[in-house]
Amino acid sequence: MPIRPKTAPKAGRPKGARSFDEIVAKQLGATTRERRLDSEMSQEQLADASGLERSYVGRLERGGSQPTLLALLKLAKGLRCEVADLIGPAEKAFRKRK
């Protein structure tokens, strides 16, 4: 029979834990920008096609934000590509770094 702790664990991430990775964010942003320019779309057009805010698309392209899974799905839909096409280069950058 498992023993239950007397106090509940603290909610949230442990101190010092980070989920933002600048290298991954910048690579994902560069890939997104490249795909958008290849499609001859403006940031505003991509935002409209994706259902995202234009300022958020700009922040993603600059590597200032890391998108959620839902945002990645929306971006891929707006760019008419697969999510794997967007995150493949970012994954390679991540693996190279570690």
Rank of each mutant, 00 (worst) to 15 (best):
G29D: 06
A25Y: 03
L52N: 00
R54P: 00
V24A: 15
E53M: 04
E53H: 07
E44L: 11
A47Y: 01
E34I: 08
G29A: 07
S19A: 13
A30K: 14
F20L: 05
D48C: 03
D48R: 10
L52S: 00
A17V: 12
K26T: 14
T31I: 08
E40I: 09
S50Q: 04
V24K: 10
A17G: 04
L28Y: 05
L28D: 08
L28N: 06
S42G: 06
S42D: 07
A17N: 05
A17W: 10
M41L: 15
S39W: 07
Q27N: 11
R36I: 13
S42R: 07
L52A: 01
L28R: 05
L28G: 06
S55R: 08
R35K: 13
F20I: 05
A47V: 01
T31Q: 11
G16H: 01
Q27C: 14
D48Q: 13
E40P: 00
Y56W: 04
G51S: 01
Q43E: 10
Y56Q: 03
D21W: 06
Q43N: 08
A49K: 03
S50V: 04
E53Q: 08
L37E: 14
Q43T: 08
A49P: 00
A30L: 14
G16M: 03
L37A: 10
R18D: 07
D48T: 09
E34K: 13
D21E: 15
G51Y: 03
D21S: 13
L46E: 02
S50T: 04
R36S: 09
G16V: 02
S19D: 12
A17H: 11
G51T: 01
E22N: 09
A49G: 02
R18L: 12
K26W: 06
E53F: 04
S42P: 01
R35C: 08
D38I: 10
L28E: 08
R36Q: 10
E22A: 15
T32E: 10
T32C: 14
S55L: 04
I23G: 12
E40R: 14
T32D: 09
R35T: 09
D48V: 07
I23S: 13
R18M: 12
A49I: 02
R54T: 05
R36W: 13
S42L: 10
Q45P: 03
E53W: 03
M41D: 05
A49Y: 03
A49H: 04
A30D: 11
K26I: 14
T32A: 14
R18C: 06
S42H: 06
L37R: 14
G16S: 05
T31M: 08
D21R: 15
Q27L: 12
T31F: 03
S39R: 15
Y56C: 00
Q43I: 05
E40M: 11
G29M: 06
